[in-house]
Write a protein that binds this DNA or RNA. Structure first.
Lengths: 263, 263
DNA sequence: TTCTTTGTGG
DNA sequence: CCACAAAGAA
């Protein structure tokens, strides 16, 4: 059987809120080392990878590897019934066709159980290469969310350019264009507001803002978002979940349409 | 004539907000002992009973018994024009065809008057038997509201089971099923959060969540909701209005469909 | 506090 | 089937 208890149930609520707009249904894979998910979004453009380590749970038991297919809209409905301060226990029998979510209020006065029917989902388990990246930018998650939201009001794509000591986000649209630049700033006094850049080579890549906006739904999970970029590779947008794991998103860059540049 | 002044006008506002979704028009009955209403909801499934005692009013005068038919949507419109801290005076001449609502701001700086046309409504005055109940559950009103709201996202009906020291709310739906259990807990330190169970016999009854959700609109009137259940009898959901009276709702249980159980 | 979402009434 | 209002989310 599989059984895992998360003292901070709010984490699970936030994770599901962050990915449910991107993915309709997904397999959650459980093994002795933890609880994870990998899935392409519905339009097969971006990829979501969640991993929660076994040791991030208050209690974790997984007798044999299982893959549990869930409809994320249903899962979200159920998790909305948990209070933010509830502890959440997930439980599933081997070969069972449901997963049980138990919510316990801090004083244990109220105990709720929700059984979610599992479903069979074909999933192509994509191996994600563990790349070295040309540039890594760590910036406050709220700031990243604000930037992609603001730029979305102007254009559809964003060009992210990273240089040694600044990252620039630029877009162009019908009404004009916009550029937002964030300087490196290792604010030691306010670590939550630091912006750090680690670079091997300057890169400049263009992405669809629509997906970055979806990724930014993970903002409540972490103080910082980490962007990793390499020429011609998908961007990796990572949210570290303190003590427990991480939620990561991959999105391929827009290839410059060179038709207009040919002579 | 009839004249009654309620210092806490907010009470009247809340009462009308709580019942206007259930009832379109109703007769308000006034006599020397108080102000009351009894009506079936529009679909003739549930029953609403309001009573405000004469001594709950700052001033109360009722020369002869009158029954005043009002359209609740209109009454609600009018009461929305009162501030929460206004005192409300209701006034109606005997044989008059209107009722006047006077709103006075706490400093008497602002005084408003609204006349509402009365209407003739046939009302079957149902005698409500004053039953002894098998089980009484008193729980925080907000918690009851939350439970019926959460369960509504999963299913259409709820099975309420009361045992000596806990009350269980269960439902089943397409995506799975749910159970919420509240333990008895006479929290002496936080009386507003206490859950108390008084039981003669364990009961388990099933109700349409839709109506319970409507009943829960009365939540702002009281810290606690009181559920009274007996086998095969309608559930009574009561909200005590401190110092003034009570708002009660009755709903018949779903009879188990035994077709599927016949051999 | 504002906006989006959902349920209800016409 | 459409529009409004109340409720929840940001």
């Amino acid at each position: 059987m599989f059984e895992a208890r998360l003292a901070q149930g709010a984490l699970l609520k936030k994770v599901v809120e962050a990915i449910k707009d991107l993915i309709e249904d997904a397999n959650f894979d459980c093994n002795s080392s933890g609880f994870s998910l990998q899935a392409m979004d519905s339009s097969h453009v971006s990829l979501v990878a969640l991993s929660l380590r076994a040791d991030g749970f208050e209690h974790y038991r997984c007798d044999r590897n299982v893959s549990m297919g869930m409809k994320l809209a249903s899962l979200s409905k159920i998790l909305k019934c948990a209070n933010g301060d509830d502890a959440i226990t997930m439980k599933s029998e081997d070969n069972g066709d449901t997963i049980t979510f138990m919510f316990e209020s801090p004083e244990q006065e109220r105990l709720s159980e929700f059984d979610l029917k599992l479903m069979d989902i074909d999933s192509e388990h994509l191996g994600i290469p563990d790349n070295e990246y040309d540039a890594t930018v760590k910036l406050p998650a709220a700031e990243f969310q604000r930037i992609v939201k603001d730029l979305s009001t102007i254009g559809d794509t964003v060009e992210i350019s990273v240089t040694k000591d600044a990252v620039k986000f630029g877009t162009t649209g019908d009404i004009g264009n916009a550029n937002i630049m964030c300087r490196q700033n290792k604010a030691a006094d306010k670590p939550d507001e630091s912006t750090e850049i680690d670079i091997n080579e300057a890169v400049s890549l263009t992405f669809a803002l629509r997906y970055l906006n979806s990724f930014a739904k993970a903002t409540p999970l972490s103080t910082h978002a980490v962007l990793k970029l390499s020429k011609e590779l998908p961007i990796l947008v990572e949210y570290h979940i303190p003590e427990v794991g991480r939620l990561a998103f991959y999105l391929a860059p827009k290839i410059e349409d060179e038709d207009s540049m040919r002579d």
